[in-house]
């Protein structure tokens, strides 16, 4: 026995209510842009440059003790954070390039930073009864300022490049009037995802960039499915009033749109629940981007298509 989420011949009036949805989107996009302009991004060291260490302790020394040890080896300027849950006994220690400049720490001494700090922890905490160290260096990331800005540049380029390539593809596969809607919806999703990261000041790093690119690829899927259907419906009943036809196409593909989004969200949510560190943030970015992607397909891409269609008709007259 199977069932349906969306009833047969359902016909929501998406197009008629487009103004409300455009306003909602406008608010979110504007909010995102304002946040990006005012708060900026909390760049991870991938982009900002600097060093980040992740330590796990056998017995929690407490954040004060960690700071004290860092101060003793001359890295008192580093930021210290708990990582994960308290029972993980894990700490993140990082120094970003801008702090380095302030403290006059050059990149050469930074290369020795991780060794110095872990030696200091080992010396201070000693060994357990089995002769094992009480501290475990989980991860060391060091990114030179030059590499950081290179990565930032190539990251931005890759986003722009992807969008342009998709624009060309859609232009080529569909007619001209379909392309802008798809691209505006794409940019909408990217801006909202970036806005969420800026607003929550979540760390923005290479993995998140990969997530943004994934969103670009994913969000366009929905749009293509609907546009494909519009094109098919144009062939089948070309005489129909175009806005009605688009509305019909959206409704016909509605259950697919919701189902696919749901199944993909399932797996993204499971990544969010069980993923650690970067993967958790990666999943978060996808969550935001996918919800926005589904929304924008229905409420952004199609109205833009209608506007362009009308303009095309006016020209013909």
């Amino acid at each position: 026995m199977s069932f349906r989420l969306i009833k047969k011949n359902v016909n929501f009036d998406f197009i008629g209510k487009q103004k409300i949805f455009l306003i909602i989107s406008g608010v979110f996009v504007l909010g995102s842009l304002i946040s990006i302009a005012l708060k900026g991004f909390n760049y991870g060291i991938d982009f900002a440059g600097g060093i980040e260490l992740q330590f796990q302790f056998k017995e929690d020394p407490g954040i004060g003790e960690v700071r004290e040890i860092l101060k003793n080896v001359g890295f008192g300027a580093s930021s210290v954070q708990r990582f994960g849950e308290a029972e993980d006994k894990e700490y993140l220690i990082f120094l970003k390039a801008e702090q380095l400049e302030k403290e006059h720490i050059d990149e050469a001494s930074l290369a020795a930073f991780s060794v110095k700090v872990s030696d200091a922890f080992k010396a201070k905490l000693g060994k357990d009864q089995f002769g094992n160290e009480k501290v475990d260096v989980r991860r060391v990331d060091m990114v030179g300022a030059k590499v950081g800005s290179d990565l930032k540049k190539s990251g931005l380029l890759s986003v722009i490049f992807s969008v342009i390539l998709i624009l060309i593809y859609i232009w080529f596969r569909f007619e001209y009037k379909y392309a802008p809607g798809a691209i505006i919806a794409l940019i909408h999703d990217v801006v909202i995802t970036l806005g969420a990261f800026s607003f929550l000041q979540k760390e923005f790093n290479l993995t998140i960039l990969a997530a943004v690119l994934t969103i670009i690829g994913y969000s366009i899927n929905d749009t293509i499915v609907i546009f494909d259907r519009v094109r098919e419906d144009v062939r089948l009943r070309g005489g129909e009033h175009f806005p009605n036809l688009v509305n019909r196409s959206i409704n016909e593909t509605l259950s697919r749109t919701i189902l696919t989004t749901l199944t993909t969200l399932f797996v993204v949510v499971s990544l969010f629940i069980y993923g650690q560190g970067v993967i958790k943030d990666f999943a978060f970015a996808l969550l935001v981007g996918m919800v926005s992607g589904t929304y924008s397909t229905v409420f952004i891409a199609s109205p833009v298509l209608l506007v362009l269609h009308e303009r095309e008709n006016k020209k013909k007259l």
């Binding site: 050469a108 290369a111 991780s114 260096v137 991860r139 060391v140 060091m142 990114v143 030059k146 590499v147």
Partner: peptide, 8 residues
Amino acid sequence: FLFERTVG
């Protein structure tokens, strides 16, 4: 040294 990533 431009970049280092060490994973335990």
